[in-house]
Design a protein around this nucleic acid. Structure first.
Length: 505
RNA sequence: CGGGGUAUGGCGCAGUCUGGUAGCGCGCUUCGUUCGGGACGAAGAGGCCGUGGGUUCGAAUCCCGCUACCCCGACCA
């Protein structure tokens, strides 16, 4: 049987959503579980999350935040405190109503059934987000302006009973981090909101090689209960948008609802200004769709569980051990080198499998660098180098010492190449548009890119356009809100404001 | 929550209309050949056919209930 032209079928061009699923399967990242809408994240996928966690967490600490942990279950009454917020999440809450099970034996079948008993006086909601329960803690912790700012982050799982789950992009349970902060003044809280927004944009660019458009959400698209929502919007290869991270300025909405108050410098009692910000395992879905190709996953080096995989080529029994020893020696040497402060992650795949099988497995798993070493290479002190950002059959024989010296630079080169490619793709697919006719026509295409338009419409007018074309304003990009006045796409009113429209996940 | 579909060895499916107690491909195990490479041959392991009930001498197959999952919409990180 001849091998298929591409490791993944269908290709991106043939059927993008199905390709996405197949990439996940081929790379062994995750699978659907028996539990509705929930996924099992397998080691190769969870490894990406662990690296994202480590690297983001470092940035959070550097910017003055501390980690803490709050309960999974939120008293129902907490969610009722902020009306807009409650309404926003009402339709997707899982509710815990009982606290014990009773074993009941069926006389006929002899089987034991577990019946929920012990109904709770007040049900709990499994957190869809933790503003309310963290706010309750903040109200106890904050007494004086001296207690501020309070800068807390939580790594946790949350649950939103989504109707249409998709691995990583939208699952009923997902992993994320949620930052929650309280400040003395609106200015400080807004500065915090902007700072974390920037941290996200930089993280996506410098760690995941994903360029984003930072911007603000319109009122329609804001987080329930927020005064301002900032977003980083990424474009993936079918030209859809993904909100890769958000940062919210909550004003005093939550502090008033939950009485997060303090005595100020002037002796007066005031309500704090709060923020919240988060990124989730959705970022892994974004990463997959941003970089992967028809041969499978392509991992940005900084979040690759293994950055270099060394495959011994052992055609002859008598030289086999020498080749394997040489591979392990190389791995050990490489581990002594660093990439962005961390030791290189190197694996020798000495499993007793055919070489071709191994090669394709690592291609599909997206390892940035594959090294093959055979008896001839051991003798000539060379290695066969394969880069995941290049064609699967493109190989280069280079001097081993040279490779050792340059390995970290090579990883950076791969990162830069991925980023550059993603930037070029994004820029080629954002079009400026000032004419309503052209705007309307644009969305009739397959996989339309984004449109950048002058915009001064009302929320209702925005809603109308959104529904008509199944699009949303992804953001009002931070860059370009102070440009020349131009007539609004819809109303013709002169405006400096620009909006980016697109289809989204 | 509305519309549709599916449930059979680890995975993907056939068999269901026309009842007779399971079959194919991939994967897995072993042996052999091959191999700077996603190869091939042979042998083998693995399923009371989602679940509860009914009809029948006999049910994966027919009837009724339940559950789960998938797809298409409306809702969303």
């Amino acid at each position: 049987m001849s091998a298929p032209k591409t490791a993944i079928t269908p290709t991106r061009a043939e059927d993008f959503p199905e390709w996405y699923q197949q990439v996940i399967k081929a790379a062994d990242l995750a699978e659907n579980s028996e539990t509705r809408g929930c996924m099992v994240i397998k080691p190769w996928g969870y490894g990406i999350w662990e690296l994202i966690q480590q690297q983001l967490d470092r940035r959070f600490k550097e910017t003055g935040h501390q980690n803490a942990y709050f309960p999974l279950l939120i008293p129902l009454s907490y969610l009722e405190k902020e009306a807009e917020h409650a309404e926003g999440f009402a339709t997707e809450c899982a509710v815990v109503t009982h606290h014990r099970l009773e074993a009941v034996k069926d006389e006929e079948t002899g089987k034991t059934k577990m019946i929920p008993t012990g109904e709770l006086a007040e049900p709990y909601v499994i957190r869809p987000t933790s503003e309310t329960i963290i706010g309750a803690a903040f109200s106890r912790w904050v007494q004086s302006y001296r207690d501020l700012p309070l800068l807390i982050n939580q790594w946790a799982n949350v649950m939103r009973w989504e109707m249409r789950p998709r691995l990583f992009l939208r699952t009923a349970e997902f992993l994320w981090q949620e930052g929650h902060t309280a400040h003395e003044t609106a200015e400080e809280a807004i500065a915090e909101t902007r700072l974390m927004h920037q941290v996200y944009a930089e993280f996506l660019r410098d760690h995941l090689a994903i360029p984003v458009i930072p911007g603000e959400k319109t009122e329609n698209e804001r987080f329930p209960g927020a005064d301002m929502t900032l977003t980083v919007e990424a474009m993936v290869q079918d030209r859809k948008a993904i909100q890769a991270g958000t940062s919210h300025f909550l004003g005093q909405n939550f502090s008033k609802a939950q009485d997060i108050s303090f005595t100020g410098r002037d002796g007066k009692v005031e309500h704090a200004f709060t923020t919240s910000w988060g990124v989730s395992t959705r970022m892994i879905g974004t990463l997959i769709m941003a970089h992967s190709d028809d041969d499978g996953l392509v991992l940005p080096p900084r979040v690759a569980t293994q950055q270099v995989v060394i495959i011994p080529v052992t055609p002859k029994e008598d030289s086999k051990q020498a080749v394997i020893d040489s591979c392990h020696a190389l791995a050990e040497t490489l581990r002594g080198h660093r990439f962005h402060g961390d030791p290189l992650r190197v694996l020798v795949d000495d499993r007793d499998l055919q070489g071709g099988v191994k090669k394709w497995e690592w291609v599909k798993k997206g390892t940035p660098i594959r090294i093959e070493i055979g008896p001839r290479d051991v003798e000539s002190r060379k290695v066969c180098l394969n880069r995941r950002d290049r064609a699967a059959n493109e190989k280069a024989f280079i001097d081993k010492e040279e490779f050792i010296r340059d390995a970290a630079d090579l990883l950076q080169e791969i990162h830069d190449a991925l980023l550059e490619k993603a930037v070029a793709f994004r820029d080629a697919n954002i079009t400026e548009c000032g004419e309503l006719a052209a705007f309307d026509a644009h969305w009739a295409q397959d996989n339309p890119g984004w449109l950048l338009t002058p915009w001064a419409g009302t929320p209702e007018e925005e809603d109308e356009l959104s529904k008509k074309h199944k699009i949303t304003i992804r953001c009002l990009p931070l860059d370009g809100q102070d440009g020349a006045e131009a007539p609004c796409l819809l109303t013709g009113k002169p405006t400096q404001q620009r909006a980016i429209w697109g289809r989204s996940y």
